[in-house]
């Protein structure tokens, strides 16, 4: 049975079978769902297609959100990334693509929650920006999504992927951790390196709170997805260069869980603390929710 309780067990399975994390996750899913790997890969390809459409729409259009609070910044950064951005053009374009997906989400477009809607930009932004330049095929990307899924599964199981439970560290932190492992595997990193990459990305944003302005998935979520993309690339580069996480992946996940427990409810998606409690955010909330122009409201 291809089941793994934690990161250590996953690593043991990969080592004993001589398989990458993506393959271990695919074998587990086959057994769990009693579905053929062909069908599972086909379903994951649907997700990849939706991700591609969201990136394309977000980068080309100047999308505006339902609230009017956001939109157009992904396009702005993408155009700028073609010149000589300080981050380097690849990382800057990945950040732009990540923002693009969250902007599409805020405009009621179709996205893939990965792992959540609030962190839906990081994985597609990183994978789809790097793929053409590095020759990663769609098949390889679909497999990489299984690798990312394995990391997300372990975080969800032992900590949380929900901002309401554990803050933004659990959303964009988890997404960056998943993306870091996925790009490390695509870059021929070992399963051990993938886990180091995942651990480093999560460590980098430990304690990050969820404080959505006006309670909406826009500010600061869109820019935190940009940060998540760069965080994922940095963590993967560190791991691929041979740098190790001093604290092993499983213990980092446990640390994230315990930080989440210590976090006050005001900082966990309730829009009562952090940026959501600033004078500007309060003013925006008042103007936004005062103009209830919906003709269908009774009374």
């Amino acid at each position: 049975m291809y089941e793994f309780h934690d990161g250590a067990a996953l690593l043991e399975l990969c080592t004993s079978e001589g398989i990458p994390i993506s393959k271990a996750m695919l074998l587990r899913e086959e057994a769990l769902s009693e579905t053929s790997s062909e069908a599972l890969l086909r379903e994951m390809r649907e997700n990849l297609t939706t991700m591609k459409q969201a990136v394309e729409r977000g980068l080309s259009d100047s999308v505006r959100s339902l609230s009017g609070l956001s939109g157009g910044d992904a396009n702005r950064l993408y155009e700028y990334s073609k010149a000589a951005p300080l981050l380097g053009s690849e990382a800057c374009a990945a950040a732009a693509a990540s923002m693009a997906v969250v902007e599409v989400n805020a405009a009621m477009g179709c996205i893939v929650a990965s792992p959540t809607a609030g962190a839906c930009g990081i994985l597609p932004g990183v994978l789809l920006t790097l793929a053409p330049k590095r020759g990663w095929s769609d098949e390889a990307l679909v497999q990489a999504l299984f690798c990312a899924g394995a990391i997300g599964l372990l975080i969800a199981r032992h900590a949380s992927i929900s901002g309401a439970d554990a803050g933004c560290q659990a959303e964009t932190g988890s997404a960056a951790s998943m993306a870091a492992a996925a790009v490390a595997e695509l870059s021929s990193g070992t399963p051990q390196m993938c886990l180091h990459a995942a651990a480093i990305a999560l460590k980098n944003v430990l304690g990050l709170v969820c404080d959505p302005v006006c309670g909406l998935v826009e500010s600061p979520c869109i820019k935190r997805n940009a940060l998540g993309a760069v965080n994922a690339l940095l963590a993967a580069d560190l791991a691929l260069s041979g740098v190790k996480s001093l604290i092993p992946f499983d213990e980092v996940v446990e640390a994230m869980r315990s930080v989440g427990v210590l976090m006050r409810p005001e900082l966990r998606e309730t829009a009562l603390g952090g940026l959501a409690a600033t004078p500007t955010a309060k003013r925006l909330t008042n103007t936004l929710f005062a103009k209830r122009e919906n003709p269908y409201i009774k009374g």
């Binding site: 649907e46 989400n105 893939v112 809607a117 609030g118 899924g149 969800a156 998935v217």
Partner: peptide
């Protein structure tokens, strides 16, 4: 974890 495909903005 990778899904669902959904129309935004909030699951």
């Amino acid at each position: 974890i990778i899904g669902p495909r959904m129309t935004g903005p909030s699951s």
